[in-house]
Design a protein around this nucleic acid. Structure first.
Length: 118
DNA sequence: CAGTTGACGGCCC
DNA sequence: GGGGCCGCCAACT
């Protein structure tokens, strides 16, 4: 975070230039047994409107072990259809292995959404 | 330098 | 709940 980043504002919202590296850094903080949303990652990275950029970053994720991108789902708790490491089924299995439960094909967000401030 | 491209999200039927 | 539209933004042509 540079001083220049902090000075950027738009429509009353503080925005930070997103970068794939910054996004990976946040994703690596998601604890086992929890999930985060794209918008949430974007917000933590400093630009709550950058959800789409988060998706792009994870799509280019170079390492599925170091960066647990399978712990990121959309705002409704559904896993991404274009998960690169084996597809949506693999993503679901890895989450279940983490202890995350699914209801009607989506994550029970009330119970498993990561709270980065706790 | 001007498009294009999405692992998105909010809003509106 | 579900589908369509549109605004969003960094990376890549």
């Amino acid at each position: 975070m540079t001083d220049h980043d902090k000075s950027l504002w738009q429509d009353g919202l503080p925005i930070t230039k997103l970068s794939y590296e910054k996004i990976y850094e946040i994703v690596r903080r998601i604890p086992k047994g929890k999930v985060a949303t794209y918008g949430q990652i974007a917000m933590l990275a400093g630009n709550e409107r950058g959800a789409r950029v988060v998706g792009n970053a994870l799509h280019h994720n170079p390492d599925g072990e170091e960066t647990p991108c399978y712990r990121v789902v959309n705002g409704q708790g559904y896993p991404s259809k274009a998960f690169v490491f084996g597809g949506i089924q693999v993503q679901v299995e890895r989450l279940k292995k983490d202890g995350v439960e699914f209801v009607n094909g989506h994550v029970d967000m009330k119970r498993y959404l990561w709270n980065p401030y706790e």
